[in-house]
């Protein structure tokens, strides 16, 4: 058998195994994650209206719908087909899995986008997953649950009441810094100020849609008022490079 056919067969088998089992395990993971709320909604005795869930989901789709599609598109060229299922099931992609893959590739001296790079990143993500599962299980599952049970009630109450503004303050700054688009940040600030302090007080019904209104207006305005020089350069650069096929 010629060497090239052998390589082709070996990689074909790898692609087949990873995409077959990657999909199956992802669907099982999806099932376990959906089972928890399904139980609360249908069997626990709590009155959770389906219409309420649809309304919440619609609000979420209006806010994050674009990102649901764009994120897999963005990560595909970096991760490669086999790691896609791995990454989107394990989560925390940008802060943990991508750095792990890149460090592994540079450790053994292979380039991202090549087949060697792909195998290195698969192995790196497996290693990262092992560490992550272990630390989550021990520090959150066991120690965390214990910690919550022993800390004083007034501290628990502070955390419950104020965790949302605390998380949002830090996450917002992180998002602004990582996006490197001060223009979009200013637009978001102006739009949100108007929505929160002018529109929402006008009618309580407005509050239900306030997030979606603010996010959609920000996205549209950021697009209309974009820095055309910068983005159009990106557009032209993309047009000149021919679309890439799967990387072999």
């Amino acid at each position: 058998m010629p060497e090239s056919t052998q390589i082709h067969d070996a990689l074909g088998a790898f692609d087949k195994t990873t995409s077959h089992w990657g999909r199956i395990t992802m669907i099982i993971g999806l099932f376990f994650s959906l089972a928890a709320p399904a139980y609360l909604v249908f069997f626990s005795g709590l009155d959770i209206e389906l219409s309420g869930i649809f309304a919440a989901f619609a609000a979420l789709a209006a806010v994050f719908g674009v990102i649901w599609i764009v994120e897999p598109l963005t990560y595909y060229p970096i991760l490669g087909a086999s790691s896609m299922y791995q990454a989107f099931m394990i989560g925390n992609i940008s802060n943990k899995l991508l750095p792990a893959a890149m460090i592994a590739q540079s450790t053994i001296g292979v380039k991202p986008g090549t087949r060697k790079g792909e195998l290195a990143s698969v192995a790196a993500i497996c290693g990262a997953a092992a560490v992550h599962l272990t630390s989550l299980f021990i520090f959150v599952g066991l120690l965390g649950t214990w910690l919550v049970s022993v800390i004083p009630a007034d501290i628990v109450q502070t955390v419950q009441l104020y965790i949302l503004p605390t998380v949002m303050g830090a996450v917002l700054i992180q998002a602004i810094v990582s996006q490197k688009s001060p223009r979009a940040a200013v637009i978001a600030l102006v739009v949100s100020l108007i929505v929160v302090f002018v529109l929402s007080p006008l009618s309580p019904k407005m509050a239900l849609f306030s997030t979606a209104i603010a996010v959609i207006s920000t996205a549209v305005l950021a697009w209309v008022l974009r820095d055309r020089q910068k983005t159009d350069v990106a557009e032209r650069a993309e047009e000149e490079t021919p679309p890439e096929g799967p990387v072999y």
Partner: peptide, 11 residues
């Protein structure tokens, strides 16, 4: 996508 994220966390 970037504007969406910043907009969501901002509001």
């Amino acid at each position: 996508p970037g504007a969406t994220m910043v907009g969501a966390f901002m509001v």
